[in-house]
Structure formats: structure tokens, C-alpha cells
Simulated assay, not measured.
Amino acid sequence: MKLTAVAIIIAMLSPLAAHATLGAAPSAPAASASTPAKRLSALPATPAAPYTMRESHSADGVTIHEYVTPGNIVFAVTWDGPTRPDMTALLGSYFPNFVQAGSTTGHGTGPLIERTGDLRIESFGRPGNVMGKAYLPRLVPAGVDPAALQ
């Protein structure tokens, strides 16, 4: 319990990266000395895919995909890279759910899969190759399969 509280306090005091926050409007990337990021592309929504996918890369080499509804709300984020991205920035108000999921699965390097409540998280990999996704089922557009998001 004490470790969880300390992790939350540290995460809230650390600088935020320039990525969209799950459940909020996408944010424009802003570079800083500690967390520069570069927005690479945005694919527009089409009738076949009722969302926009935005890709960015952190200075650490993590690729982040943000999935945005036509109403300009991020319903999912995925990541792939040598380290886990700044989860506080990606998950926003859902970060405590992420911390709680991690504390219930134990401490270690195994996969983290949490499918309860409003937030779905899947994070797995090994040192140097970490990937995952987080999404809000209530915001996923009709006809979109979250399993297909990469």
C-alpha cells in the first residue's frame, strides 16, 4: 500500500510527456529536455475506420499510437519500444487503475492484463522490447475491434 502511494505521488510530480491522455482530447507534442516527442502522422477517419490514428515517437524510441474518435476523444493508446512510456501522461485520470492492476498481479516482469472496470490494459514484453495497449470500452466506436489496434 505504501509503495503504491509513493508511486502515485512520484508519477504526479514528474513532468508529463507530450502524448494524448486516454479519455481526453489529443494533445500536441511539446518537446522538453527530459521528454521530447515528435508527432509523425495522423490518418484521417474513414467510413471503414471511424477513428483517427496518430503516431508519435518519444526520445526513448517508444512508438505511441493514439486512437481518436470523430468527437476528438482518445479511446485507446498503444505503445511499442525499448521501455514503457510515461503511463501517467498516457492514462491521465485512469493512472490509479493502472497502479492498482499492477499491485494485484504481483511484482515481476510478467505480462499485465487487466480487464475489469472501465479501463482495459494489456502490457507485456521483456527488457528492451515492451508493448501494450490501453482502451476504454465505452468509448470504442461501433464496429471497431480493440484487439486489432496496434
Rank of each mutant, 00 (worst) to 15 (best):
L40E: 10
H107M: 11
P47M: 00
E122V: 13
V130D: 15
A24L: 12
M12I: 00
A28R: 07
N72P: 03
V6F: 06
A7R: 12
P82Y: 01
L149C: 05
W79R: 05
A59W: 04
L43T: 07
D60H: 07
T69P: 13
D145H: 14
G143K: 09
T69Y: 04
T83M: 06
T104K: 13
L136E: 10
L90G: 09
F75S: 03
L136S: 09
T78S: 07
P47T: 01
A48G: 09
P137I: 08
M87K: 04
P127N: 07
R39A: 08
A7H: 11
E55R: 09
V62P: 12
T4A: 14
F95S: 01
A76Y: 07
G23I: 01
A33E: 14
T105W: 05
D60E: 14
S34C: 04
V130K: 13
G106F: 02
A147Q: 15
N72Q: 10
D80H: 05
A101W: 11
P137V: 06
N129I: 03
A134Y: 13
H19A: 12
A28V: 12
P50C: 04
P82D: 03
G23C: 04
F124N: 12
R84V: 11
T88N: 15
T69M: 05
R115S: 09
S34L: 14
T52H: 10
A59G: 09
P85K: 03
A134P: 13
F98G: 02
A7D: 14
G71L: 02
T116F: 06
G92Q: 09
S56L: 15
G102E: 11
H65A: 00
S58V: 00
V77Q: 15
G106A: 03
P70D: 11
A134T: 06
P44N: 04
P137N: 07
T104R: 11
G61V: 02
T78D: 02
M12V: 00
A89M: 04
R54M: 01
R115T: 11
V74A: 13
T105N: 06
R120N: 05
A31I: 03
G110D: 09
P96T: 03
T21M: 06
H65W: 10
M131K: 15
R115H: 09
S58H: 01
Y135A: 08
W79L: 02
P146L: 09
